[in-house]
Computed example of a mutant assay.
Amino acid sequence: MTVVKSVLSAVPRWLTEPVPRGRVAAFRTLVYLFVAADLLVFTPWIRDKASIPGDLYQPLFIGRLLPLPTPTPLLVNIIFWALLLLALAAATGRAPRALGWAVFLLYFEWMIIAMSYGKVDHDRFGLLIALAVLPTAGRARHGDRESTEAGGWALRVTQIAVVCTYFLAAWAKLRFGGIEWTTGSVLARAIIRRGTDLADLIAQVPYLLIAAQFGIIAFELLSPLVFVVSSRWRQWVVAFFYSFHLVTIATITISFAPHLVAMTSFLELERLRPIHRLRRLARRPDGDTGPPEMAPETPTAQPSPAVP
């Protein structure tokens, strides 16, 4: 009973473990800038949904529950431009609650529009959770070393969503494909459809794809261990996560970009302070961006040589 009580009391402390405000500020800027990039670079095809007949719109459960309107050209374009402008404004860190909630609601509707035509991607779960919790983190400035429990909670919940993406992906594979998923031709079909030259070389190695499928299942099922290792080893585990996606991009060209952004919640982002440095440079007089110069030394008189 004592063990149970100690565990229950430790969970809230773990969920709200303080982090530097500078880490929250950097994460917030990165997430909102990605939302803007997502609209323009990664998923511009979502705007094409405006020209699709409304009869083909099959909303997700949440879209039927609320209910949300059927996308029209006017609705899609209003959401696109409003989301783009508000995301850029939110990236500055100003009005974190008002702008944060607005961006979350608009992006949530944007994703419902994107995924209500037959295909649902699971790489955006962590990003959506990050957008949902960032407004609760409060104000945070780049380079600020003061600790915040609210910011720690926002990052921790995002981390949990990232790990759930892995673990539940393995659960879905075993639920719908059974253990036969590991010995099937899943990766072979993916390489045929969208493989690279590197993937073609790998596919020629006997049984390597089968071994890779076993490895994927093991990796996804064991992903929650990132929370129980020491902070030093945690960075190595996260580095392995990123390397896994690097190989995925290099072989079957699946980027998981939104997931990779959400996964930066594990990183010590406060060590990267480009915005903070730019502000310091901007405050220097006369636009001087170089290091402060030392005052020239006054030459000292040299003693005259002694006359013999």
Rank of each mutant, 00 (worst) to 15 (best):
I217L: 15
L209S: 02
R189T: 11
F240W: 12
A199N: 02
I249M: 13
F244V: 15
V238N: 08
A239V: 12
L208I: 06
V228A: 15
A218D: 10
F227A: 12
V186N: 12
Q235N: 11
Y207D: 04
W233A: 15
T264L: 03
L267K: 02
L267D: 08
L269Q: 02
H259E: 09
R232L: 15
F266P: 02
A212S: 09
E268Y: 07
I191F: 08
D200V: 01
V247I: 15
L246A: 14
V226E: 05
S255T: 12
F244W: 14
L198H: 02
F244C: 15
V237H: 11
A262Q: 03
F240P: 04
I191N: 01
L246K: 01
A250I: 09
Y242V: 13
Q204R: 12
L201D: 01
V237C: 10
A212R: 03
A262N: 00
R273I: 10
V247N: 03
L272C: 10
L201P: 00
V247Q: 08
H245E: 06
V238L: 09
L209P: 02
I202W: 01
I252L: 07
A199V: 00
F241H: 13
A262P: 03
L267P: 01
L201W: 06
I217R: 09
R234V: 13
H259A: 07
L198S: 06
L272K: 05
V261R: 00
T251W: 03
F244E: 08
H259R: 01
V229H: 14
E270V: 07
V261G: 01
P224K: 12
Q213M: 07
L187Y: 03
I192A: 13
F214P: 07
G195V: 05
L187A: 05
P206K: 04
I210W: 06
I252W: 05
T251Y: 01
V261I: 11
F240S: 14
F219A: 14
V205F: 05
R194M: 09
R271F: 05
S231E: 15
W233M: 13
